[in-house]
Design a protein around this nucleic acid. Sequence first.
DNA 1: ATGAAAGCGCTAACAT
DNA 2: ATGTTAGCGCTTTCAT
Lengths: 392, 392
Amino acid sequence: MKTFSFKDIDIAMIPSSRAARHTIKDVAVRAGVSLATVSRVLNGSAAVSDATAEVVRTAAAALDFRPNRLGRNLRASRTNSIGVMLPTLRHPVFAECLDRIECAARDAGHAVTFATTNYDPSREEQASELLLQQRVDGLILTVANAAHSHLLDKLDREGMPYVLVYNQLQPVKSAKAPRPCVSVDNRKAAHDMVAHLIALGHQQIRMLTGQFGQSDRARLRYKGYGDALRKAQLPVPDAVEFAFMVQDTRSVLMDVMHVHPRPTALFCASDQLAMQVIRDLQAMGLRVPQDVSVAGFDGVQVGELMSPALTTVVQPSAEVGLCAFDLLQRVILGEQPRGSALLHHTLRLGGTVAPYSLSTPASPLEPALPRRSAAPHKSFSVAPQPPLKGKP
Amino acid sequence: MKTFSFKDIDIAMIPSSRAARHTIKDVAVRAGVSLATVSRVLNGSAAVSDATAEVVRTAAAALDFRPNRLGRNLRASRTNSIGVMLPTLRHPVFAECLDRIECAARDAGHAVTFATTNYDPSREEQASELLLQQRVDGLILTVANAAHSHLLDKLDREGMPYVLVYNQLQPVKSAKAPRPCVSVDNRKAAHDMVAHLIALGHQQIRMLTGQFGQSDRARLRYKGYGDALRKAQLPVPDAVEFAFMVQDTRSVLMDVMHVHPRPTALFCASDQLAMQVIRDLQAMGLRVPQDVSVAGFDGVQVGELMSPALTTVVQPSAEVGLCAFDLLQRVILGEQPRGSALLHHTLRLGGTVAPYSLSTPASPLEPALPRRSAAPHKSFSVAPQPPLKGKP
DNA sequence: ATGAAAGCGCTAACAT
DNA sequence: ATGTTAGCGCTTTCAT
């Protein structure tokens, strides 16, 4: 029995209010066919005669029909949506990566639900739970501590498809399949940059980094730094660690630059840090690259706009995103391409690094600012590790 | 009749495969109560005795129960999720805004589904359709052309709650309620910066911008530029328009800087453009700010890291995001706070702008070696700004 | 305070 | 080629 439905009243009586959408049933009625036929036409899931297909499409168009994915997803227990969980978007590397992921996903008809974690494992837990309740088909994520992550354990336990980005896991000896991740080879990349500095004649090279606790990447980069120094038979100084998001690196730089022999090159674990350091060195009266060379890591676009342009290791962030999505698709489909994808890094040679031979002899430091008290930083070194064996 | 369910087999037999989750029904059975009771406990939607509530919670925990939002959403026709649609994340302003939106949304228990449009109206259409099919509760978006947008018309027609960000609509005289949007007062902000340049003695000020066709914001900023010049009884030159994302601005700058009298200050409609221009001016042998002052617009963080630091208009992107989310919540709840929220802008005075009196007399343009600017600088923000207009 | 039952909109067997 | 029907997991009347 067809009655005067509430929906009709609603539309008619409350014009500018939120109108209930038409359903597949409305289309079926208008087209004079069954629900199933409408579904088939809309999804191309089975053969339908051209004539009826046309009728259905006309009816759908006339009603401004918009399929309700909630119904479809519930029924199919597949949502055609993925979750992306990254530490922050204030870092261009992650922003660019998400940008690319979303592009790829949309091209494939997938929605992207997004969450930030701010490097906080408890937020990782909370955010992922929301995504899982939404029944995303898979997850692309960066975790704070990939080696010991409850979240990853949980995902593995539940068989939830995921791909790590930027995290770079060492192949584990255990029987378990390696976790799929997409990144550059941080160790090799750092090695390449430091080797470049050495080739330019630098012998006193310090590494500056955010806190190791924050990221496996930072530790790998330090290892690469050590690799290059050892290969050149140079001693390996401790890394200089900066607290998260310090605004002013000067007090620490004072210490770093006051030792003898003074560093002639600084290798920073991120572009952000490198740019801060360059600014603060200049404020201290040191010229870059004449007095000291500075190299970064990430390859953010703005580095090219500085003058001199920042010398840095370029990570292909967009490519990381694209590759992660493709990989995730495969995992969702049941393949087990579990293993690391190591993408190519490149060195972008700007003007912040100069050959040592061109450097002026070390001049005394004349502090532009009153010397500050002991810096809130600490140094420690990372034990040497066996060489990385990755399979790109 | 309770039969041996397929789910049980699945879990038991295929250990590491994707296990079907338990449902509310499983919890009910285990707790020995009805589905309704479980639902009530989990949502606190009705009074349940403490004893049974406890039993239910225990059962849920034991089963690792995770509610399926698909079911809930379908039933409630409310998803507790919002859609965000922005041109790109390669622009830090949008990235930061999304970052903040997501934070606010998660705090409120809302999921964020995200899409980019690349300033392309057809992609706006496509992306929004996907979000609408997902039945997001509301939309936060930036459109290419806010004054003539089919998409916005459609959203209005359907009564879909939305809030515009960065788009700044002029109050329309027509009876229709104004569209809710959150932005800075672009015209006033541009005026303030140009007035600042004038106050420093500059009389020859050109404005450089991306294509007007791309954005209502660019047009408003040009108006503000004109306002300031007219107020000082100066002529108002045309804006210099750059094609989208040009890599090298030198050829255009050649023309701009070769006229007589030569511009002593350049006001750029974005920081990205300003930084490019500064780099290219230096490549042309012109010093910033000694030979020409350059100001930007946006307030991206990296501007502070350049030396000299970029003088710019700071938009509070995070605040824009937060404010937009709050506003959207209200619209979703049925309020009609439709109207613009204009957020405070500030001027960040870096070293790329100098008083005209300090400028060296215009020297002939002769390509010299890229030279380093020596001027130390400081960065601070201008405190008081005109009061917030509109009804946030 | 608790339970039974009716769907939300859709897809996928299974019929015809 | 098309129709019928049984749910997907959940909330929410309406009874009790």
